[in-house]
Design a protein around this nucleic acid. Sequence first.
DNA 1: GTCTATAACTTGATAGAC
DNA 2: GTCTATCAAGTTATAGAC
Lengths: 187, 187
Amino acid sequence: MDSRRKIVDSAKEMFWRHGYSTTSPKQVMAESGVGQGSYYHHFPSKAQLGREVVDENGRDLVDAVQAAISGLRTGREQVVAFLRSADDALAGCRIGGFAYDAGMLAEPSLRDALSASFERLTAVVESAIRAGQRDGSLSSSLDPGRTATALVAVVEGAFVLARATGRQASADAAAAGAIALLDAVAR
Amino acid sequence: MDSRRKIVDSAKEMFWRHGYSTTSPKQVMAESGVGQGSYYHHFPSKAQLGREVVDENGRDLVDAVQAAISGLRTGREQVVAFLRSADDALAGCRIGGFAYDAGMLAEPSLRDALSASFERLTAVVESAIRAGQRDGSLSSSLDPGRTATALVAVVEGAFVLARATGRQASADAAAAGAIALLDAVAR
DNA sequence: GTCTATAACTTGATAGAC
DNA sequence: GTCTATCAAGTTATAGAC
């Protein structure tokens, strides 16, 4: 694997777990095993590395959700599978933490990449809701766009709660509460 | 106002808006107008200041929610008022961002204070749900604890989405979606 | 592309005088 | 309680050789 890829792969994991502003280039060099000269040759500024990390982590997240819901028969099952996204909530969302990183939001290119990732994620959930309304597994009375945004918020909030309390059960309860609400409407 | 209070008041605002790990003691001194000697006399370590900030911001948040819902006639109205908490979402939640701050979570005393604040908030929402079930404005079929956790997650997620997209409308859509779900169940 | 050396600045304190 | 001076370590790079 080339140095550039080693840098990006290490940074993806480290920015996710430890934060963008609170992870230094030096730490990325140590973790990836890439030297300083090589590192700055590929990424002259931290923001450039951040940009690639946000793009790739956002794509990884959307890909993971699509993989989790593909093949499920009903729209409701797909939505329920999405709500299980925070099954390892203590690790945090791949991109959710960036929303509270002032250093990241201050860079327009990083913020744009983050915004685009969340929009793609919400669109996937909205599609699943529409599918559920067509196949009869979800109530047609729900507005697909707003409901999708609310469900993405539940998942992002589940990550926040679990990390704040230190208990995975907080995320599980949030997901269970949302599923119960959905099912009570469908009924 | 004494120096200690100036320090805490400035730090509450700065840790909230800019993050705990990404705000330095020096910045707090500059903002509060307190000198270095005085600052370190009152707060020999940053974690001690962090502890007071988490406690006070958590209490401020719970107080604000209770003030917003007190006097509302039905439990449903109280829950809806809570869901409007992210009406200035771009500023971020007073304590939500701390859940993604590794430097804060690494300190047990800070993490415990954060956890306690979220538990108090969830308890307030759960009380409102139970009140709504008693007065008939919310469905009795809902589990109060799980539903409260789900609704707190919606609000925390609404902050994340709004900050990530840079649009208040994201938070508004999440809240509207959750309210629509609740009302569809109650009906 | 990768190396080592260096730079200018910030971070989170500590020391000792007033 | 508050002041100024100092500190070791870390941050985000840049310079120039190989």
